[in-house]
Amino acid sequence: MAEMTSAGPAGLSRRQEEEAFYHEAALNATWTGTRLMIGILVSAIGCFIFAFFYLRSLNSHNDWYPAGFTGPKQWQGAVIMALIVVSALLQSAGLTQIKAGRRGAWLGAATVALVLGVVGGALQIWQLTVLPFQPGASGFASVFVGTQPVIIALVLGTMIWLEILLVRARGIPEISFVEQPPTFAEAADVQRFQASLSALTLFWNFVALTELVFWVLFYLIH
């Protein structure tokens, strides 16, 4: 974003000046908004984590995870979690590529990340249809069945965002990622794209972390 100063703020007309001002504000808003949204989602997801530990510690009628209860299949959980986490890592790696000016490398990594994410989400939906227990079979079963759709919505929602960025990246000439574009509008475009991409990467890593946390909760410690 340091390119902006090279244009020399003093030489801007009033309208350009205001555009630059609100452009700057929009970049800040993306940064702030993403972190705030993560806070909001921590609050929402915290509700389910709270339910997990609360019901687990209460264990009313010894029905949190009764003897003989069959949980979800270990391999399913591991595969889904791995898909999402790998997807997030790929996207993070891709981000360093595009920051270094290599759009193509990012496009490739992000496309794979998108596919992995969508497959991960789809697998979770499929897993819900083949569960070896009824939703109300135990406290654990309730929390599991209740939480999964929330995570699925998070994963697929983030994938829509990634898809939008993939499509948008096509409209930006590759050279713009390497050097300062000639016009203010183009420069602003690239900067907004980059801000959004950084935000997405952070967000996707947050979702992957959520997935990881719930994998630990549901498959390791239940």
Binding site: L55, S60, H61, D63, G136, G139, F140, S142, V145
Partner: peptide, 14 residues
């Protein structure tokens, strides 16, 4: 709807 038991005491909820 899907008959989870978050709030049903006898089924592990509270």
């Amino acid at each position: 709807t899907v008959q989870t038991a978050f709030f049903t005491d006898q089924l592990g909820g509270s």
